[in-house]
Design a binder for these strands. Structure first.
Length: 462
RNA sequence: GGCGGGGUGGCCGAGUGGUUAGGCAGAGGCCUGCAAAGCCUCGUACACCGGUUCAAUUCCGGUCCCCGCCUCCA
């Protein structure tokens, strides 16, 4: 398959470093608060890449970090507060309890929208020694320096390729645009922390060769990705907001430590917007998975919503569009139930549809086109029902919409429903429409959809 | 100020130098006792101003507006 590589700014073929096996790292959740739909769109992107690669018969190993080191409200200030500490004060829980609570919630929400569990979920707090080791290596390599307070900074001037991912090269970075306090001990305003000495507002801290402190934000991803995937792997994914500085700094760290390229392809997902703005807790415009269910919407339908836009585009979330997606997914499942069972053989027409679908997925995850192919298949007169079923069931391996749900759950009418259906048909035969309509109302009141067919009344769950 | 991405019909959005996705909503029709389901048909949109061109929504220039990153952030 092909993906757009942020590093080269081109769509390129994914050629696994290890034959037949793709290794992928995903920037995961920070676990001192709940995830929202925007986070999930990005995690879904990683899972979709995995599903697409698997559709092509490749093996995929996916690692996603759990950031349970509380970052600071303001990295530059020594008086800043630990976000984990703030959460602790709010909730009366210990840091690890908070991390556990939100990790569980994150995985549950992800599962609800059809994101499968990554193979490895390393926690930052369990890898501090790896981060210290990486930092020592960078000091030894001349890429980092220790200041007298016990913090360690990365010397960006030692890494000539700095800026290659984001375009923020050193000649373009200027200090002071945000009126932030910076540590005057830094040699350059662009240098960033690998290790920070613990200040008074700091809750989570560890011993290190430079004194008590905590790791810089970017170092966890360098340390954990290389620990589990090696110093050469294929794909790294994350939200577009991480492109700079997080991923730029990660490249400087990883490549500075090992002395060669580590990651081939960087994939960044566009943000989901709500009311014209990025969804973020700070803006207070957060929508979470449980709210979908509260509104009677299937969380899996959120997938269909995101499939309308390409992953790199920003996308507007509206409840109207979310409800549309929900309607469409439910309808697809009902049609699938009508088309069961699946055909064993595919006609030439079906194989052509299959090729088009697979090509769309392989083409930098072109879900909008894939969605269109689904629509054309559904309304195609040339493809027999059983083949429609077989195709959609196989495509669902990527789409993840549980399209076979209705067919699988093969709803059985109760005795009472069967009796009402018979009564209604009798009434209709006798043209007693008042009575037949009354029975229809009762059936509808039981949550059923009532349809007239040449063979008489048919009902199914709505 | 730097870096990056946008402005498309009611909504979400794809895409293209000329035949101008798709979904959902809406309108009409077929079917039906009526309705539902299903099927068929319909919408002529691409911020604004110039330019290039036989032809621009699509290319170029400018203007306006929006969003993201440059602090923690999917």
């Amino acid at each position: 398959m092909r993906l757009f590589n942020s590093l080269t700014r081109q769509v390129q073929e994914i050629v696994p470093i290890e034959d037949g096996h793709v290794r992928m790292y995903t920037c995961g959740p920070t676990v001192y608060r709940y995830m929202h739909l925007g986070n999930l769109r990005t995690f879904m992107l990683a899972d979709l890449i995995r599903r697409a690669l698997e559709l092509e018969g490749l093996k995929v190993t996916q690692v996603m970090n759990i950031t349970d080191v509380g970052h600071m409200t303001d990295e530059s200030s020594p008086e800043a507060l630990d976000k984990m500490l703030l959460a602790m004060e709010d909730e009366g829980l210990q840091p690890l309890e908070i991390a556990e609570k939100y990790t569980a919630a994150a995985l549950e929400d992800a599962l609800a929208v059809g994101i499968r569990r990554p193979d490895v979920l390393p926690k930052a707090t369990e890898h501090v020694p790896d981060m210290i080791e990486l930092t020592e290596r960078l000091i030894d390599n001349g890429h980092a320096y220790v200041v007298d307070t016990g913090s360690v900074y990365y010397d960006v001037s030692s890494f000539p390729e700095y800026g290659k991912l984001s375009g923020n090269t050193l000649d373009k970075l200027r200090p002071g645009h945000r009126d932030l306090e910076t540590d005057p001990r830094k040699r350059s305003h662009a240098d960033f922390a690998l290790w920070k000495a613990a200040g008074p507002g700091r809750l989570m801290k560890w011993p290190s060769p430079w004194g008590e402190g905590f790791p810089g934000w970017h170092v966890e991803c360098s340390a954990m990705s290389m620990k589990y995937l090696g110093d050469r792997f294929d794909i790294h994914t994350g939200g577009t907001d991480l492109r700079f500085p997080h991923h730029e700094d990660e490249i400087a760290q990883s490549e500075g430590a090992v002395g060669h390229r580590v990651i081939d392809v960087w994939v960044h997902g566009g943000h989901l917007r709500l009311a014209g703005q990025k969804i973020a807790k700070s803006t207070g415009n957060v929508v979470r998975v449980p709210e979908l269910a509260e509104r009677g919407l299937d969380p899996l339908a959120f997938r269909w919503l995101t499939f309308q836009a390409r992953y790199r585009s920003e996308m507007d979330f509206t409840w109207e569009a979310m409800e549309d997606a929900d309607r469409r997914v439910r309808q697809l499942r009902k049609r699938m139930a009508e088309w069961a069972p699946p055909a064993a053989e595919l006609s030439a027409e079906s194989r052509a549809f299959d090729r088009r679908f697979r090509e769309a997925i392989a083409d930098d995850l072109d879900l909008p086109t894939a969605v269109k192919v689904v629509g054309e298949l559904v309304s195609s007169a040339a493809v027999p029902d059983g083949e429609k079923y077989a195709l959609l069931a196989s495509w669902d391996g990527v789409l993840g919409l549980d399209l076979e749900r209705d067919a699988r759950e093969a709803w059985e009418p109760t005795e009472e429903v069967l009796r009402l259906v018979t009564e209604r048909d009798e009434a209709r035969n006798e043209k007693e429409y008042a009575r037949s309509d009354e029975i229809r109302d009762r059936l509808q009141g039981m949550g059923l959809e009532v349809m007239d067919t040449p063979a008489g009344t048919k009902v199914r769950p709505r």
